[in-house]
């Protein structure tokens, strides 16, 4: 992942990071979507682990998780599938701490790494509780991407940045994931300041749904993460082929936007 961001930087390009729910509508489709996203220029893909009570996710993602779980998806199925994918871009697990704790941090990281994940985002694990998992990830050279929000005080943001590896996830709205109409001004200010305090790549996510949002952020961030706007398309479109093509086009247009200008 470090190499990926270094390469992008030398090419003066930005990372585009789509989010996909594992197993919605099924793992075979997820595999095809990952491939399609990579083909259309995504640099890295976030894979959401369906969880029954995801307080850090918005309603679109939760509904997607519920659909996957209703079909009997198990966490081991995700690891088994990812192992087979041999994805051409790095994959990052987006997973609630409850699921990590259930297996044990050590076992979870071991399984995830073996399956082919490069790192994880655990959105409900603030730094105060993250020491054990961070230590385990370090032993495995497995990235643990931490989040800062517009309401995070600077002193705290510095601590978060120190604990983060891979990149720093900059939450772009106050609230949970979901599509928002506008990008708050505080985010630009925060990105500018973060740039002066950490050498980690800065990726902005949560609430980015339109190419216009991506365009606004491209000069301030090293990468853009888009989740709900993609997952929403899975919900609306039944036939997999059509969904894959449509998501591919969205990804391509966003990749173009973040690298325009």
């Amino acid at each position: 992942m470090d190499e990926l961001f270094a390469n992008l930087k030398s090419q003066r390009r930005k990372a585009f990071i789509p989010f996909l729910t594992a197993g919605d509508p099924d793992l075979d489709t997820t595999a095809r979507l990952v491939q399609e996203c990579a083909r259309r220029g995504a640099s890295l893909v976030e894979i959401g682990f369906p969880y029954s009570d995801p307080i850090a996710d918005g309603s679109v993602v939760q509904a997607s998780y519920t659909r996957a779980l209703d079909k009997g998806l198990r966490i081991a199925d995700i690891f088994a599938a990812v192992r087979k994918w041999q994805a051409s871009v790095p994959l990052v697990a987006m997973v609630s701490y409850s699921l990590v704790h259930f297996r044990g941090p050590h076992e979870f990281v071991h399984e995830a790494e073996e399956a082919g994940f490069s790192g994880a985002i655990v959105p409900d694990l603030p730094i105060e509780e993250a020491a054990e998992l961070a230590e385990t990830c370090k032993e495995h050279e497995f990235k643990l991407i931490q989040l800062v929000t517009p309401t995070t005080p600077r002193e705290r943001a510095e601590r978060i940045a120190r604990l983060s590896t891979g990149f720093l996830y900059c939450v772009s709205v106050v609230g949970i994931t979901g599509e928002r109409a506008q990008i708050p001004a505080e985010l630009f200010e925060q990105l500018r300041w973060l740039r002066t305090t950490t050498s980690l790549p800065l990726c902005a996510g949560f609430g980015i749904s339109k190419p216009e949002h991506a365009a606004l952020l491209r000069d301030h961030a090293d990468g853009i993460i888009v989740g709900s706007a993609i997952v929403r398309r899975l919900e609306r479109i039944g036939a997999a082929d059509q969904a894959i093509a449509e998501i591919g086009e969205l990804v391509e247009s966003l990749v173009k936007t973040v690298n325009a200008g």
Partner: peptide, 8 residues
């Protein structure tokens, strides 16, 4: 065990 958004 909450998102950073809630810590504040």
């Amino acid at each position: 065990f909450v998102p950073e958004t809630l810590m504040y």
